[in-house]
């Protein structure tokens, strides 16, 4: 499946240079896992990053640095985390799967959240699962919000967002997305601040979800 909604080139470059925080990085990584064309943009930036790294004047290490490293590889490596995402999700980094496995909680009927990481400031990273056919109350945002669909689909106006699709919403976007009727939708979200509800239903929804 080829995603239809992509991060901007600017965001891809910020990802490549390391300017995105952890939560944003994970959301963009979710999209990259299924998008060859965005991966090519990032690969070029990373190639430049590697070349710059390799050309940097070295900073001297402690005299025993190599010995310490060799001693550490003698010890058994930490067991690689091989948890597997549910097989109807697109591939995601392991910490996302861990969050779903260990921190998932029901926030409202038909809605679950699993926090991934907090900060900086009001920023939050979380997984959001919403049941088939449900509407998210009309809302806008404080700060930018990035979303990557991991499973299922939602409709936002005329646009259909399916697995791997990326969305960027900011305070200028007021919307009322709706999950399609064919199944639960799971999204990976990096939000700069809490949702700002626009109607009474949203005011109830928000404290329940706690985001």
């Amino acid at each position: 499946m080829i995603p239809q909604h992509h991060p901007t080139e600017t965001l891809l470059v910020d990802y490549g240079t390391g300017a995105l925080d952890r939560n944003a990085r994970l959301v963009v990584a979710g999209h990259l896992g299924v998008c060859e064309s965005c991966r090519r943009v990032v690969a070029e930036i990373e190639e430049l990053g590697g070349a710059l790294l390799a050309a940097l004047a070295p900073a001297p290490l402690q005299p025993d640095a190599l010995d310490m490293a060799l001693a550490r590889i003698e010890r058994p490596a930490p067991v690689a985390i091989t948890s597997t995402a549910p097989n109807d999700w697109i591939a995601v980094p392991w910490e996302v799967i861990e969050a779903a496995r260990t921190r998932r909680r029901w926030a409202a009927p038909g809605v679950w959240v699993a926090p991934i990481a907090r900060g900086p400031g009001k920023a939050r990273g979380y997984l959001l699962g919403i049941a088939a056919g449900m509407g998210v109350p009309r809302h806008t945002h404080r700060g930018a919000e990035m979303i990557c669909v991991l499973k299922g689909a939602y409709r936002d106006g005329d646009a259909l967002h399916r697995p791997g699709d990326f969305a960027w919403n900011d305070e200028t976007v007021e919307h009322q997305p709706r999950i399609t009727s064919d199944g639960e939708c799971v999204c990976l979200v990096a939000a700069g601040g809490p949702l700002v509800p626009r109607d009474w239903m949203g005011r109830i929804f928000q404290p329940l979800v706690g985001i």
Binding site: L26, A29, L32, S83, A85, D88, A91
Partner: peptide
């Protein structure tokens, strides 16, 4: 779609 956890420190490109 087959989904596999990618290592924590990988480039997360799949």
């Amino acid at each position: 779609m087959n989904a596999i956890a990618i290592g924590a420190l990988s480039t997360t490109l799949g």
